[in-house]
Design a protein around this nucleic acid. Structure first.
Lengths: 138, 138
DNA sequence: CTAAGTGCAAAATGTTTGCATACTT
DNA sequence: AAGTATGCAAACATTTTGCACTTAG
């Protein structure tokens, strides 16, 4: 946790724009660094890590830690569309490493179940289902 | 992935016994190291990491990567009781960090749903639900 | 005897921190 | 001016690797 970014800086904008440009894509801190270098925007890695932390705190991006990857991933959280109950779930294949984005009402239902029966308020943005994908089951 | 342990060694036994002794407990590689030192059983850390990998491959222990912790956790997989449909799910509180073990048929049902409707074969042993626990919702 | 496992130390990652400087407001 | 952010390099923590040596089968 930190105090939260308060100043609008060039570095922060670059990061936010990058995430906005690829909604649904999982991006590591290292990939952010590379992206910046390619853009000719040299941003120190400590700045990147600190900004990522801030952006997570502010709910602008989400952080995922996925087995098989050695580093954490971040993803644009999208516009907070409160009307839509469309929640996106993530399934990660343990064999090929593929990450599947899934929209499913039945899955949304488990969030309600967990809350009503177990008092646990699920955060679907952060939860990753592990298993084996269709292609790898052959 | 590795070729799988084939030899029965003292080091391997020590690790397996340790995990068996604490079913349901999440143990990091570092904790395994410490445990061995306390026992007077000096086991090199590379051996520990390599054995942990083997044990995961063999399904004797499961590996979890949980946000907030900097290192991976391992847990005894338990006897493979095929008769029982009792599967254990993990819920991790994002606020207090508590890890809740949950047995629930409804949750087991989502495994079937994912398989039938989405062709995804869920591995519940590896999946962690993130959210906020009852205590932290006050 | 051979394949597999071990242990050490070194290297490779990924992430965090201290501190002087620069930028926002 | 005051508070915050940046960037560098160094520090850290965890995990992996190379290699000579030991052990199980």
């Amino acid at each position: 946790m930190n105090t939260g970014a308060k100043y609008k800086t060039k570095q922060r904008d670059v990061l936010v724009e990058y995430f906005k440009k690829y909604p649904g894509k999982h991006i590591t801190a290292g990939e952010v660094c590379e992206h910046c270098k390619k853009q000719g925007e040299h941003i120190g890695q400590s700045t990147i890590y600190r900004q990522l932390e801030s952006l997570v705190d502010e709910g602008i991006i989400n952080k995922y830690i996925i087995d098989g990857k050695t580093s954490a991933c971040f993803e644009y959280a999208g516009e907070h569309d409160e009307n839509s109950s469309e929640v996106c779930f993530h399934c990660k294949c343990e064999k090929c490493g593929k990450l599947i984005h899934m929209h499913c009402d039945e899955l949304s239902a488990i969030g309600r179940h967990l809350y009503q029966k177990h008092g646990f308020e699920l955060n679907p943005m952060r939860t990753v289902f592990y298993g084996v994908c269709e292609d790898c089951q052959k």
